[in-house]
Design a protein around this nucleic acid. Sequence first.
DNA 1: TTAATTTTTCATTAAGTCTTTAGATTCTTA
DNA 2: TAAGAATCTAAAGACTTAATGAAAAATTAA
Lengths: 225, 225
Amino acid sequence: MEGKNRKILIADDEPDILEILKYNLVNEGYQVITARDGDEALEKAKKTQPDLIVLDIMMPKKTGVEVCELLRMQAAFKDTLILFLTALSDEGTQIKGLETGADDYISKPISPKVFISKVNSLFRRWQKEDAAVLTINGLIIDQQKFIVQYEGKDISLAKKEFELLYMLASKPGRVFLRNEILNRVWGAEVIVGDRTIDVHIRKIRQKLGVDCITTVKGVGYKFEL
Amino acid sequence: MEGKNRKILIADDEPDILEILKYNLVNEGYQVITARDGDEALEKAKKTQPDLIVLDIMMPKKTGVEVCELLRMQAAFKDTLILFLTALSDEGTQIKGLETGADDYISKPISPKVFISKVNSLFRRWQKEDAAVLTINGLIIDQQKFIVQYEGKDISLAKKEFELLYMLASKPGRVFLRNEILNRVWGAEVIVGDRTIDVHIRKIRQKLGVDCITTVKGVGYKFEL
DNA sequence: TTAATTTTTCATTAAGTCTTTAGATTCTTA
DNA sequence: TAAGAATCTAAAGACTTAATGAAAAATTAA
């Protein structure tokens, strides 16, 4: 089910919980690292650079909140997802957690199903950058299937055309500079003349038959439908 | 406290909850739009393009889950944060919510403190992308989209005009010397006559239709609305 | 290999932007 | 208030940039 190859670090002092969560995560295709206290969590976090860190609040050596604070101070963990486990349904602690820079928390007792859902959901948001299917008004762009439809009709685009359209449509309204386009669609090393972009834009406009790409002279192009 | 100018749409059929949440959010400096059922939520979402949408699961017309599904199909709401409110501590529903593409959920009864914490926390993740958008009274200058709007109407500026306006509007009230303007908009090497600036200023004044650029004779120009 | 398609280049044309010019106007100050 | 300086205005021409048509080069499929 999952092509994701994501690393998750779980820190909790209760071996049972560690075991259950690990089992479920591995089942979903995640790589799992475990730690039994705050210091071990810190150390393993630095060594393995996980994508998500799950911290129990109550742990020996250092609490989850302390670990979180220490991690957030380091640039390497600025964007790492952090999730708290808390036995206390204590409101104060929950708030403290979120304000320290955690991304979410789950109250014990934990249901494995809810846990997995939450983890998946956190990642889903994170990887949003490259969502597979764009739908804008009547236009459907499916990156996986490499298909474009407009108002039900299939439109066959060549590779470069597709990539260009996908790039523009992924942020409707935003202007992409010619340079940005060259870098992303052609790659930084490839050198092509300026007119090349224009010609591809023209092809897309022709094939779509709708006026959805706007020229911003001297700047670039933007998509809007 | 907050420089954030974020829009939040709350949809719930219970006026009390709407009221309490709105009060707290406004207090934190957010802009709040409300809706009383699923259809109204959809409609207002499209119209106002909020940054965060809070959906009650149980609503007339359409449930929160349905609204969420419909929104997620549209590219414009690909990155919009969605948060569920649920009275059911029912595990199944929670999972369904997350799998539909919601970013989080909160169980009723809701503690305002926890709610605000969660909202702030959701946004914190986002803030990196912060687009360079200036908003001054009715004037919106969006550098990414290369768009200027005044009181809802689009105003099309050429590149130099846009840069010039953006420069002035980025520090309302401050006077920019003609030299500063030349350096920033034209670059240090380029040599153009003095009248060139005037002419561009005039164009901007014409196109905007509002008197927002003031001449400071012998010195330069300043923006004020 | 040939044929078909895709990608790029080039020359030409079209569209728009930027700058200059010059006379009118406004402002400042002696 | 009159002279000088600075800015406004409108229009023309210079200059940039993009759209277009056609064809060569490169790639892929048959």
